[in-house]
Write a protein that binds this DNA or RNA. Sequence first.
DNA 1: GCCATTTGTGGAATCGATACCATATTTATC
DNA 2: GATAAATATGGTATCGATTCCACAAATGGC
Lengths: 328, 328
Amino acid sequence: MLTIKEIAAMAKVSRSTVSRALNNSGYVSEEARKRIDQVIEETGYAPSEQAKSLRTKKTKVIGVILPTIQTETASKIVTGLDKELSQHGYQILLANTNLEKEKELEFLDLLKARQVDGIILIATNTEQALLQKINALKIPVVLIGQEAEDVASVTYNDYHASMEITAFLIEKGHQRIAFIGVDETDRAVGYLRKKGFFDEMAAHTLIVEENWVQRAVFDIDSGHQAMEKIITNSTEKPTAVFAVTDRLAVGAMSYLKQNGLRIPEDIAMISIGASEMSQYVDPALTTMDYQNELAGEKAAKQVLSLIADPSGKKNVVLDYRLIIRDSV
Amino acid sequence: MLTIKEIAAMAKVSRSTVSRALNNSGYVSEEARKRIDQVIEETGYAPSEQAKSLRTKKTKVIGVILPTIQTETASKIVTGLDKELSQHGYQILLANTNLEKEKELEFLDLLKARQVDGIILIATNTEQALLQKINALKIPVVLIGQEAEDVASVTYNDYHASMEITAFLIEKGHQRIAFIGVDETDRAVGYLRKKGFFDEMAAHTLIVEENWVQRAVFDIDSGHQAMEKIITNSTEKPTAVFAVTDRLAVGAMSYLKQNGLRIPEDIAMISIGASEMSQYVDPALTTMDYQNELAGEKAAKQVLSLIADPSGKKNVVLDYRLIIRDSV
DNA sequence: GCCATTTGTGGAATCGATACCATATTTATC
DNA sequence: GATAAATATGGTATCGATTCCACAAATGGC
């Protein structure tokens, strides 16, 4: 590999001068600069980022820890992140946990060893061990999707969004509403969305039958199964179902259709996500748009600002908007 | 930051000894090792990957260049890549071109400057400039989705898959078949899939009306528009449509449904991709499964083997299988 | 008990850049 | 024309690891 030393020799200057020319720091004469530029042009030399960052303590790399790339949410967020980061010369180093919590901790260490300038964590929980590790890290970290004390974050307003969805169903005349959620250690998707639902139901003094509430995991099949349980176990059938993600809703819809139940006439369906798919299933799904790409951009902006000034931690809360289609 | 020097001091040994203990190279006494382990345990020290790779010339990072992360194809491939790479301690550095060809070249340089151990390129073309640069790079590169001379690759059998799809439609009794394709500089998706279609049609001496063939770009909307053109411009309507991607098919279906045409009774629909969505649109889409995750794994395996032995370039061609559902 | 291995350890060079400092030359100021 | 400031350049230390080499101590074989 070509090094600065060889470039210096070829341009008949010292390494210092080449370095100065490269970084536009200090003084370099017209002539020297011209010769250096030409040599670089001819050889296609590019300085080693390795060596550079060993010296400068900056890598221009941001680590991104995510539970999976195979969801639209994740890929939209990453797109948003990349859009903003690449503009500032940063690249993304991926760390995929495959939904294993312990890996989040492992990757935080690994990314530190790789000296990333910042970390973005698409979080699935806010457990103490995680938060402690983040604070011990001394590297800017921004959480997406979960809010936590002392850690910067970009979150969706899960509680209010959930209330609004519930209110929308009630307004449409529904009184018996079922709920398909996920594990509550996921504070945002599991706990807050559920709480929003229950609080809004309570505010309208509507009761929720126990069998109407099912816990699923993050895939379509799981939504299907949850819907099956709701239909087969409940004494009185609900007239609407609130699923916390589009995929769960799609799974639930497939069960309903298979069993001859019409949507929305027999059972209405609503969810959160605004995935591409939600638009093309039949009927088109009424869903809450969380603007994941924007979330990525905001998180990227924040991590960049934290790199410049680590003291300015913020909790950005994003807006949501309901996309009304045909499933309610 | 903690360095090997400090660890050495704390354990009362030299840096050399710590390094040997860390890498299990050379001799280290029981006692010394014990003290070192303890200090590392207490301090949570992790060696700087920066410094390490400056010396060893290995980064354990693989660069992945892709046209977009927002397609299922891409995210499945990345999942497959990560699955295999992470098992061997490699991480992925993302480079998103947003479908801009020139960026592929730029990123190749950038990744070289970052000294990645290998590069995986989810390619959209096989132009000379690209191939030349790849060969000049002296870094293992594996192409996914496009085959090219002198470059390792993992490809789908686009030509044959396309023929099989066409044959399937013909076998089902269709004679007037429309085709929604993409730009032919994309050799695999654009050129080969089209050629497979035309060759198979010709083999059955079936003619393809000019207006039945439309060029679209890679999104749902574009499929919608292409379908509109086919319906409104053709003198005799086709009885089946072959779209080169699921998204295009979904867009086409949405046009057909909006205009009261029944699928498959009036017009049958078939495509390539086996996306999650294809299963839940109405009617469920008959589509060709390309096993993208497997492609990622194979590409990862190949890049790892090229790192070990750069001479063993291969062109792996993957199998496909038709998933027959309700749209034909 | 002597010589040859094996085992254990530290010193110093090195990877490829940056950055500080000293020094030389040119230009400006009065 | 002397002095100060601006411009230009190279030498050298440094970042944090690995690795080679020299050397010392322990072990073994006869």
